[in-house]
Design a protein around this nucleic acid. Sequence first.
RNA 1: GGGCGGAUAGCUCAGUUGGGAGAGCGCCGGCCUUACAAGCCGGAGGUCGCAGGUUCAAUCCCUGUUCCGCCUACCA
Length: 889
Amino acid sequence: MVANLLDKIYDPHQVEDKWYHYWEELGYFRADENSEQKAYSIVIPPPNVTGVLHIGHALNNTLQDILVRFKRMKGYNVLWMPGTDHAGIATQNVVEKQLLEEGLDRHALGREKFIERVWEWKRQSGGTIISQLKKLGASCDWSRERFTMDEGLSEAVKEVFIRLYQEGLIYRSHYIINWCPRCQTALSDLEVEHQEEPGKLYHLKYPFKESDRFVIVATTRPETMFGDTAVAVNPEDERYQSWIGEKIILPVVHREIPIIADHYVDVEFGTGCLKITPAHDFNDFEIGLHHHLEQIKVIDEVGRMNKNAGPYDGLDRFECRRQVVEDFERDGVLLRVEDYPHMVGHCYRCKTIVEPNLSLQWFVKTKPLAESAIESVREGRTRIIPEMWEKTYFDWMENIRDWCISRQIWWGHRIPAWYCGQCEEVIVSKEMPASCPACASNRLIPETDVLDTWFSSALWPFSTMGWPKETKELKRFYPTSVLVTGFDILFFWVARMMMMGLKFMGDVPFREVYIHGLVRDEKGEKYSKTRGNVVDPLDLIDRFGADALRFTLASLTMPGSDLKLSESRTEGYRHFANKIWNASRFALMNLEHFNINEVPQDTPPEEFNLPDRWIRGRLNQTIRDVEKALDNYQFNEASHVLYQFVWHEFCDWYLELAKLTLYQEKEGKGKALTQQTLLEVLEAILKLLHPFMPFITEEIWQKLPQRIERQSIMVAPFPRPDRQFDDTMATDQMDQIMEVVNAVRRIRGEMNLPPGEQIVALFRTQKEEIEKQLRTNQSFIQLLAMVKEFRVGEHLERPPYSALAVCQDLEIFVPMNRSQMEEEARRLQKEISKLEKENVLVMKKLSNEQFLSKAPPEIVQEVKERAATFYTRREKLEESFKKIKEMIG
RNA sequence: GGGCGGAUAGCUCAGUUGGGAGAGCGCCGGCCUUACAAGCCGGAGGUCGCAGGUUCAAUCCCUGUUCCGCCUACCA
C-alpha cells in the first residue's frame, strides 16, 4: 500500500491547527524590517480586544489574508500588522455590567480599582479574538501585535494630542454635544444613530406679557420648554412682524422671554413660531449664540429634569414629558397634538436616546485637517475602491464638523491636561507639571476625561509601527499598501486615519482603501442578536472547515455590494475542497515510481500529448485571470476562475483524459510526461488556491512527492504562466474533442443509454482535416464517450436506425433499435425548433441593409458563418427527421 | 430634503471598451464507471423592472418612471 495514500474524504479538523502552528513556528508570518525586498503592508482593522469573532471579522480578515498570502508568494516582504483596540465605552459597559451583578458600581470601586478590573477582564478575554483569527488562518505577524492602550501607542496619543493642542487644532469649549444619559458621557456626532420613531407634535400656547394674545409653538419635546429662552419667527413672515421684540411669559415657570427674528425659521412649518432651547437642541444652540440668548439646562447627566424645571424637578425626561402634556392639557396650554414620526438619535453603544446637552468638552478642529485628506484622494495618492465611495468620503469631509473627543468614562487614554486650582490655567503636557506655569501654584487638578477610542485608532497605521520614534518599520512599511475595511467605519476610522496620517507622517496612511460590503443572512437581513439570526464563523469552520468558509466569503465578495451568506454555499465549497482532495488522491496514486527531480526541465512542448499541452495552456490563462482579478480586488472573479478551472477543466476533462496514458501505457516517456504534467499542474493549482484555502493546500502539498527542496507552500513562489504552452492549436483541437464528446453524451443522455454501456458511433465528414483529427484523437473520444466501435469516413452510410448529432462539418450517428426511433424523432424535432428560433434572429440581421453596410466587417462575417452553420445543421437534422418519419410511419 | 446602490433562471448573484444570455444552489432523468455519491453524465428553466431615446445593433449608453435597500441632513 502506498504510504501517503490519502483518505477518501478530506477532514479539516485533523489538519488546520497542525499547519497553523507549523507556519507560526517557522516564522513565516514575520515581516522583515531589514529586508530590501519590495514591501507590502496592511494594518488590521483592530477588533475590540474583549470581543469575539463575528462573520464580519471573518470576511474582513479572509480578504486581507488572501491579499497578504498572495503577495508573500509573489516575493514581497509582507507585513500584516495585527492588534486590538480598547473600545472605551463598550468595554467599560461590559465591566460595569459585571460589577452590577456583584451589586457594585464603578464609583463604589473608585477609578483606579475599576481600571484595574478592566485590565483584568482584558487579560481574561483579550486572547479570544486573536485565537479565533488564527482558526481562520490569518497570517498576521503576531510578533508585532499591538493594543491601543500599549505604552508605545499611548505615547503616540499623548504626542498627537499635545501637538494638535499647541497648534490650536484641539480646544476646550462649552458647547452643545450629544450626551448619553446611560453611559454618562459625551459622544461624537458619528456615535449617534438616527432612527425614525413615531412621535407627536405638540402645539403649545405661550401668552404675551403685555396683552392677552398668545403665540403658538410646535414642539416634539415639550419637556424642554423650561429651557426656552426665546421664541423665533422668520423676519419675512408677515403674520408676525409686529411681534418681534415683544415679550412672552413661559407657562409654569413664568419666565419672561423675547420674540426674536431669525431666517432659520421655516414659515411653512407648524405655526411658523419656533421655541428656542439653546441648551438642549443643536439648532437652537446656534441661534442662541447669534442672539446672545441665555442657555438654561433643564436636564441633567442621567436624563432627569433639574431644578430649572420647577415642579418637575427630579423627574425622568420622558416621565416629565408625559406629565407636562397631561398638565398642559388640563390648563389649556396644550392646544393640539398630532402624530409626527421623526428621527431620534440613539447611543451607538447602548441604544439609549441621546440628549443634546450643553457641556465643557474637548474638540478637534477638523476643517484644516480635512483639507489635505480631501486633496490626497482627489489627486489619487489614496485610491478608494470601489470608486463610488469616494463621493461619500468627499461629501462627509467637505461638511465635516468639529470632533468631540472627550469622554466622561474611565477606560481609555487620559487626556494629558491639568487645571490650576489657583488661576484656572489649563496646562497640556505629557507629564504632570510641578507647578502652574502661570501663577506657580502647585494646586494642579488633573483632567479626568479620557479620549474617544477612535482618536487612538486614527493613529493606528503609524503608532503601531513605533511612531513617534523614527523606526525602520515606518520607513519600510508606511504608507501601507492597502486598507481593507467595511463602509460602516469609513468616517469613524478611515477618514480620521487619513487626517492624522497626513498631519503627522506627511503622507497618506494607505495607497488604496478597499471597501467591502456587509455580510447578511440568506434573506438579506443584517445579522443581529435581537433578530436571532447570527451565525458564528467558528461554528461554520467547525462544520465545513476554515477553507470552505474562506472560499465562500471570497466568492461572494464583489466590489460595491453586500453579500448574502447561505449555508448551502459554504457546503458547496466544502465539496469543492473534497474535490481538490480527491483529485490529489488520484494524482498520488498515479505518481508512484515517478521522481520529479529526475525529469528534464527543458522538454519541448511538442513532446507532450494534446491533453497535457491543453491543460498547461489553460493553466496559463487561469494564472493570468487570477492575478488580474486579485490585483483589482475582484475576489469573486478570482474564486470563480479557480473553481471553474479546477473542477470543470482539470478534473472533468484533463484527469479523465490522462487516465488513458496513465492506465494503459507501461512505464515510458509518454507516461512520464503526463505524470510530470499532472504533478506540475496540480502543484500550480495548489499554489493558486493557497491564498484562499491555506490549510488543505498545505496538507496536500506536503504529501506530494518530495521535490529536492520542498518547503511549506506558504513560501512557494506563485505560479507564472509558461508561454511555451500558450498553444491555440491545442485549444482548438481540445475544443473539437469536447464538442464531439458532448454531442455523443447528449445522445446517450437523451436516448437513455446507460452510462456504462459501450456504443457504436459513426463519424461522417467531408473534410479531410477533420477526419484526420478525429483519427488522431480517436482514443480520447472513445474513452470519454464510451465508444467501443469508432468509425470515421467520408462516405459512411447512415445506419437505418440511429440517432444523429451534427457538429461543425461533422455528422455523428449512433445506431439504435427501431423502438427508439420515436424518441429520436422527438429529440430531433426539439433541436430543429430551437435552431429555427436562432435562425430567425440571424436572418433578420442579414436581411438588414444597414447592418451589412454599417456593422464592422468581422461582425458581419461572424453572423454569416453562424447563419451557414444553422442552415447546414438544420438541413441535416431535418433530413434525418424525415427519414425516421418515413420508416416509422 | 440631498446622495448612492440595486432590480437578469425557482433562490443567491456574475456579465468592465454595445454584436450569439452565464455560474452556484435547487429541480427533473440516468448512473455506486477502481480519485471523488461531498461524486459522474444528461436535461428543463429567462419579454435581462417598466416606458421612451441614441445606434445597423442595447442586459450594457442616455432620459424618464416604479419598487427595494443604504448613507446623510438642523424643518421644530
